[in-house]
């Protein structure tokens, strides 16, 4: 596989989580997961007002770390 193909797979994988935590847990399946609670928050509510933002940050730094490793290999 070329560097670019590996990069595309990595991107699709991370964007899946991006979609799942915001549009999925925060909006579409929010009702189905709201029986679970974090402190006083129903899980769906928490994802839409706090959780998705934390996940976004983790996704960016994860991508940055993994793709830099790929890039180093590519340059060798």
């Amino acid at each position: 596989m070329t560097f670019w193909q590996k990069n595309l797979i990595l991107l699709s994988f991370l964007l899946f989580f991006w979609f799942l935590c915001s549009f999925g847990f925060g909006i579409l399946f929010s009702e189905y997961i709201s029986f679970m609670k974090i402190g006083g928050f129903e899980l769906g509510f928490w994802f839409s007002q706090q959780g998705s933002i934390y996940v976004f940050i983790i996704l960016i730094f994860t991508y940055s770390y993994l793709v830099e490793r790929l890039e180093k290999k590519e340059k060798k």
Binding site: W18, I27, S48, Q49, I53, F56, L59, I60
Partner: peptide, 26 residues
């Protein structure tokens, strides 16, 4: 805005932060 929209205010919270994932990745 969120105080009065309640849950509907989430669109701004997710919308105005989730774009940075697209920016950084794409």
């Amino acid at each position: 805005l969120i105080a009065f929209l309640g849950r509907d205010g989430s669109v701004y919270l997710m919308g105005w932060t989730g774009g940075y994932v697209l920016l950084a990745l794409l």
